[in-house]
Structure formats: C-alpha cells, structure tokens
Amino acid sequence: MNLFTILISTIFINNYVFAQFLGICPFLGVSNKTETAAGMGVAVTFVVTLASVITYVIHHYILAKLGLEYLQTIVFILVIAALVQLVEMFLKKSSPGLYRALGVYLPLITTNCIVLGVAILNIDMNYNIIETIVNALGASIGFAIALLLMAGVRENFELADIPKPLQGFPISLITAGLMSIAFLGFSGLV
C-alpha cells in the first residue's frame, strides 16, 4: 500500500473516531470550543506520532529480538504515559491558558485508546517506519478534524432552539452519530 493511500484512508475512510470509534472521550469532552479543540488536536497529534515511532523502535529492536512480544501493551502504555507527562509539562510552561482549558483531558490522553490503538495497529499491520509515521499522522489529523467539526457544530448549539430534553449531551451524541454516518460516504474512495 502506498503512503498516500494510508494517509487518505486513515483520515477519511477509516477515521479513528467516526469509523473505528476510538478516542470518543476527548471527542465529546473537549469539543465545546474550537480553540480548545484545536489545542487538543495538536497535543494528540504530537503524542500519537511520537508514541508510534518510539513503540515501533522498542517493539522491533527490543521486544521482538528478545521474544517479549507479550509485553507489548504494558510497554506501550509506559511510553504513552511518559510522553503525555512531557506534553503536560511543556504546555504548562508555554501555554498556561490552553493547559487550563484542556484541564483533565490532557492527562487523560494517557488513557485515550486512539494512542494505544494506533501504536498496536502499526505493529499488527506490519508497517515499516515510514508507513508507521504516516499512519500515525493520518490518525491524529483525522482525530483533529473530527474534533474541529464537532466543535464547530456544538458552538452553534448555543444559538439553536433545541427541545429541552435534548439539550446538552443528548444532542451532541445525536450529532456525533449523524457525522459518523456522513463519514460512511467516504468508503469506497480508495
């Protein structure tokens, strides 16, 4: 599979949020404002891409060599947790506003299944290092797009006349479902 196909398919066709339903927690939690959604998108992009590269190296040059593939999950989580800590420290220093806006969702990137999911899928699909990077970038761009689209829609909820029982989370879940169906339209593109 060439790199372009991987990129397009992870962003649109197999969008990790809309098609594979990974990373739903921040998708619903941080999509209130476009600004914080963009910040979250960048933070996740950083963590996912770097985690994919590091886990690729660790898996192929340490775990596989020693026959320790069964340690995959715990080692990957260790890598992700350390990276999230690093991002948190960096944001606290460089952008306290964004740090406060992201709140609890920043450390929660650790448990965001999209990060672990991408890292493990890279290994399972037997991607090489370049393909791994492209796949990780595509996954996180797809995640950021999903977050931004959702934030754009949710900002308009403020002005919309929504029936009372549907206000707040119910309408967000309905919107997420409809967007997921809309993304089905991309299937068959590649």
Partner: peptide, 27 residues
C-alpha cells in the same frame, strides 16, 4: 530476567528523562 530488565530499564530511562524535562520546563 529479560522482561524485568527490559521493563525496569525502560521505566528508569523514561523516569530520568522526565525528571530532566521537569527541570527544563519548570514553571
């Protein structure tokens, strides 16, 4: 032995680099 060494080594490596990073990014 291998799993212990690998996990412990990685943990130590990440711990040290995070400790270093916390000095660099100290607020």
């Amino acid at each position: 032995l291998y799993p212990i060494v690998v996990l412990g080594g990685l943990g130590l490596l990440f711990g040290v680099s995070l400790g270093f990073a916390s000095k660099v990014f100290a607020v």
